[in-house]
Structures are given as C-alpha cells and as structure tokens.
Amino acid sequence: MTRRSIVYLGLVVAVVATLLPFIWMLLGSFKTQGEILRNPSGFWPQAPTAGNYATWFTELHLGQFFLNSVVVAAVTVVGNLLFCSMVGYALAKFEFRGKRFIFTLVMITLMVPGVVTFVPLFVLVAKLGLTNTYTALILPFLTSPLGVFMMRQFIADIPDALLEAARIDGAGELRIFARIVLPLCGPPLATLGILTFLGSWNNFLWPLVAAQTQDMYTLPVALSLYSTGQIATQYGLLLAGSVLVIAPIVLVFVFLQRYFTQGIATVGVR
C-alpha cells in the first residue's frame, strides 16, 4: 500500500466517524417510536416513515418557530452588515476623538464571556418591558465586536486616493460610503453575513431566557424545551426536529463554505 492510499484510508475512516452522528440522526428520524425502543442501536429503518416530520408540521407548530428564527436571523444579519461596515469605515478612514477608546473596547469585548453581560442584559430588557418580543431577541445582537474588527481591517486596505478622488469630484461622505466603500467590501460582507446568520440561527441561551411564550420561540429554543419536556422520550420525533433545525444551515454551509472558512482563516472565528 502506498503512503497516499494510507492517508486516504485514514481520512475516509475519520470523516465517516465525524459524520456518523448526523447519518444516524437522519436515519433515526424515519423510524417509529416502537422500532427505536426495540433496537436502540439499529442503523437502517425497517419500515421508513415520514410521520415524525408530519407531526412537527401539524402538531408542534414548526412553521411558527421557523418563521421566528428566519425573522430574527434576517434582521440581525442586515443590522450587522450595515452598522459594522459604517463604524468600520469611521475607524479605518477618519481621525476623531474617542477612536482609540472604541477600538480598544471592541478588542476587549472579544474576550468577554457571555455570562458576564447576561444578568444586566436581562435586567435591562425586563426594565424596558421588552421581554418576549422580537426586539429583545434581536437588539442585543445587532452589532458584533468581531464584525467591527473584520470590517475595519478590510476597509483600512482601500486606497485613500480612491476616496480623495471622489471627494474632489464633490461626492458627499454618505455617497462615498454607499457607492465606493460598500461595493468594494463584497468578500468581508459575505463572510460577516454568513457568520452572523450562523450565530443567530444556532443561538439559544439568550432566546431561551428572553422568549417566554411559544409564539416567540426560535427553532433551537423549541427543540430544547420539547426535548426536556413534552416529547422527551419520543426519540424519532426529536431526531426529526434536529434534522429540521440543522438542515437549513448545512445547506447554506455546503454551498457557501468558501466564506465560512475564509472568515475563520483570516480572523479566527466561528
């Protein structure tokens, strides 16, 4: 056996082992409760059924949770793209009082554990009377220090001459930002957009606390509550729910993975 075939063999074994939980999840989601209880370690479904999926759509209000997740993620993505590139532009191309302070603060908050701001954030949202609203789910995530850092780094590399030329031609600052800076920021905006979508879609601790009635649950919150509550032992149903939660993100990932990995390789984020 050549060295190369040993490498391939090792990689195939490793990738199958890595993906096995997902394969098992997918196969299990087509099994009936009875089959899973009879043979917990079984692999192929004996009598495949889509019943678990049907239950999610009819009895478990999947549509509502899906809609909530989409709304929250969409607004969060748009906010991040806009606000992070705006402040990134200011930090990269202007001198102003407080600039160093803002940038240092952004760098520090990259290291702040989530639990630190959790309590005051909850108290604040409660005092503003925002608990159990879309606003509460979205507002705290509308900008991110990481996005600011990424956009600042990229915009700093745009040649000043380009902006000066536009200024001499009499273009206003807003116009320069919208017509020159933003169109050049395609790649980092794509990366930021995808990472923000990923973070928002998978986020569950804050929505678990901030959303209190079923009509506000996002997908992970619903799955988390169902899996410890009313369907805790209905494995087939839970597995189908898991497939429904991860399917959209895996699809986005497979088609746009270039942007995921680029973001990680350059700034080290997930």
Binding site: A14, T18, F22, L223, S227, I249
Partner: peptide, 24 residues
Amino acid sequence: AFRTGFYTPVVTSIVAVAVVWRFI
C-alpha cells in the same frame, strides 16, 4: 469534501446535536 465533512459539526446547532449525542 473531506474538509466539508470535518467542518460540519462546527456549523450545527448544539441543541440538535445534543439530541443525537444523548442517544449515542
């Protein structure tokens, strides 16, 4: 394809993954 496979666990929701891992 390999890279995609090894990276997939990173992008998936911990809540969904927990369901299957608890069973495993």
